[in-house]
Simulated assay, not measured.
Amino acid sequence: MADPATYRPAPGSIPESPGVYRFRDEHGRVIYVGKAKHLRQRLNSYFADFSALHPRTQTMVRTAARVDWTVVATEVEALQLEYSWIKEFDPRFNVRYRDDKSYPYLAVTLDEDFPRVMVMRGAKRKGVRYFGPYSHAWAIRETVDQLLRVFPVRTCSAGVFRRQHQLGRPCLLGDIGKCSAPCVGRVSPEEHRLLAEDFCDFMAGHTTRFIKRLERDMREAAAAQEYERAARLRDDIRALERALEKQAVVLPDSTDCDMIAFAEDELEAAVQVFYVRGGRIRGQRGWVVDKVADVTTADLVEHFLIQIYSESESVPREVLVPA
C-alpha cells in the first residue's frame, strides 16, 4: 500500500471551487469518486490527520496512488458528474446499495397481444407494467385471485394459451369465470386489453371508480329483479374490498409517495422503501450497504436517491426521507 504523503497534492495546487475528485490505485483504476463544495478543504481532510479518518477511508487512501479532480461551476453539476463517474468506473470504495434479496413483482405484459398477469423477478422488461415489489410471491397471488373475479385477465403461459386455442375450449379458470378466455374467442383482443388496463388502473390506486361502478350496476340489477346478477356483483365488490384490505392505509387517498427508512451502525446501513399509491402501501423493497467511509445519514440518503431514481421510469410526486 502507498504512503499518502507520496501523492499528496502540492500546497496551493487544489482549487477552492466546487468539483469532483477521483482517487486512483497504482494501476490507474478509479477506486473512489467524491464531490465537494470546496475541493481544497475536502481533499486536504484526507491527508491532514490520517489517524482521525474512518478505518475504511484509511484503507482507501493507502490503496490509492494518486488523486485528480475536475472543477465545475455549481454543486448541481458536481452531483451530476459524480453520478456519471460512479456509473462509469464502479469504484470499489464508493457507497453501493444492493438488494437484500430478489423481490417479486406483479407484472402485466402489456407488450403482448393478449396481456398476461403474472409474478416476475429479476430485470424489468420494456412494455411490461410492474407493481410492487412485494415481500412474498404468495401475497401477490392472493391479491390476483381476488381481482380476477372482476378483471378476468389471462394468467396462463404461452404454451397453455396455444394448447387451449388448439383444443377449442378454455382452461379451468375460464370455466369458473376467473379468465375471460381470449384463447377461444370469448372476448376480442380489444376487450381483453381493456380488462388488463382496468386491472392496472385498480392496482395503481384508482380503486373508487370501479367499486362505485359495481355498486351502481348491482342496484340496477336488483331494481330489474335480476337477483342472481346482483348477487354476483355484490360478491365482486367484496372481492375488491378484500384485495384492498391486504394493503394497509397509511395516508390520504390522493397520496402517491415513496417512504424511505434507514437503520445503521458503524459498519453498514439498511434501507426499506414503502411504495404508497392511493394512500395504501402497494409494495416494499430493501437494500443494504457497507459503509466504506465516514459517511453521515444525509450522505447515505443522497447516494441512495441518486442510485435508485436516476434511471427509474416511475418516480412518485413525493419521496419522504429521514429528517
Rank of each mutant, 00 (worst) to 15 (best):
V67T: 01
V71D: 07
D100I: 15
H136P: 01
L39D: 02
R149N: 11
P55D: 09
H38G: 05
V119W: 03
A78N: 07
R149L: 13
S51I: 12
A65R: 08
W138I: 12
R98T: 14
S84D: 10
Q80C: 11
A137Q: 12
S45K: 06
S51L: 11
L39W: 02
P91D: 10
R62F: 03
F131R: 04
D99S: 10
S135Y: 08
S102E: 15
R121E: 09
F47W: 13
V95D: 01
F50R: 14
T143C: 10
F89T: 09
E88H: 12
T57Q: 10
W85M: 06
A73Y: 04
R149Q: 09
T70P: 04
T57S: 15
M118E: 13
D111Q: 04
S135W: 10
S135P: 02
A123M: 08
Y130T: 11
A36W: 01
K124S: 09
L81G: 07
A139S: 14
T57R: 05
V61A: 10
Y103H: 04
E142H: 11
E88Q: 15
R42M: 12
P55C: 04
D145S: 13
P104D: 03
P115M: 00
A123F: 08
F93R: 00
Q80W: 08
R66E: 14
V128A: 00
L39A: 01
D113R: 13
V72K: 01
K126W: 10
E75L: 14
Y105T: 00
R42I: 13
F93Y: 15
R116N: 11
P115E: 01
D90K: 15
A139E: 13
A107Q: 00
K126C: 03
E142C: 07
P133K: 02
D100K: 10
K37I: 07
V72M: 07
F50H: 13
F50P: 01
Q41Y: 07
L79F: 09
F50D: 08
